[in-house]
Design a protein around this nucleic acid. Sequence first.
DNA 1: CTAATGCTTGCAATGGAAGTGCAATTATTG
DNA 2: CAATAATTGCACTTCCATTGCAAGCATTAG
Lengths: 149, 149
Amino acid sequence: MKVVMDINYINMNEIEKFFASKKIRVTAMRLLIYKFLAEKEVAVTLSDIENAFEKADRTTLYRTIKTFEEKAIVHQIDDGTGITKYALCEKGCNCEIETDLHLHFHCNNCNKTICLTDHKIPQIKVPEGFISENVNLVVKGICDKCSGQ
Amino acid sequence: MKVVMDINYINMNEIEKFFASKKIRVTAMRLLIYKFLAEKEVAVTLSDIENAFEKADRTTLYRTIKTFEEKAIVHQIDDGTGITKYALCEKGCNCEIETDLHLHFHCNNCNKTICLTDHKIPQIKVPEGFISENVNLVVKGICDKCSGQ
DNA sequence: CTAATGCTTGCAATGGAAGTGCAATTATTG
DNA sequence: CAATAATTGCACTTCCATTGCAAGCATTAG
Ligand SMILES: [Mn+2]
Ligand SMILES: [Mn+2]
Ligand SMILES: [Zn+2]
Ligand SMILES: [Zn+2]
């Protein structure tokens, strides 16, 4: 895939350094997808990315996201819609080790899912003998935009 | 599908009454699937049911579960594995109205998912402007059987 | 700089779960 | 028993996720 790199070179430079720190190669696809995710304020599906980059192959997008996931650049969100969504990890996020402790909100009206990164998941009690390693919490309802503030 | 009704008639009688109270017809399939769910202590997938009733058609099993769901006889569980699981609702459960407020535990070792029906989901704070209608909380880790008590 | 090596990409194909249309079967009602 | 309504089985379909393989591109050793 040939792309015209008409995007901000300064930003791109930073992303390149970031990729290097994560020990992954810098490619046009990866830069573009990273930028796409960074500009979105909501979690996206693979189809969303597909629609944004129609010239690229679905598999490449899929594998790029998988690579990002392995390197803790993005995290998966299962919001119960049946379609996996992805969002950039926060700086200093360590979802490789213990999963993402913030909660996610899914709007039943506009169908968007957002990370509530500063809403941490409270400590959850489990019965004797059970060991909790990881918690997934999704709140569903109406988002701020849809509720009319 | 022809089945030999070699199962406890007294129990069956109770289930029949239960179905009547839910205003659904009593059929062999429904009785068998209900009994199957009642005997399981874990949430099951459609495939689990399929394997247990190989003579039955998948679609019938699928639609039976859907009917149970609509009538609040079972509730769906999305434990993040990507495959929907089902479990019987507790007596007095009203997951039709407000979703199931108990939490679910998914064992990363044996891959089983169980309802922790008496572990209710705590009140979750959401930001200004957001309206919470419903919460899905899944704890992942090691279950009591796998942790060695 | 060039060649060898290994990672990345595109294409084609597969698998699995979920869901639907329609006709045949079975249950309920009168 | 006949008419009516709900349930079941079969054949398809759709959609997302995932993989094998060969071609393309980037990195590194020489
Ligand atoms: Mn998130
Ligand atoms: Mn449950
Ligand atoms: Zn919304
Ligand atoms: Zn276990």
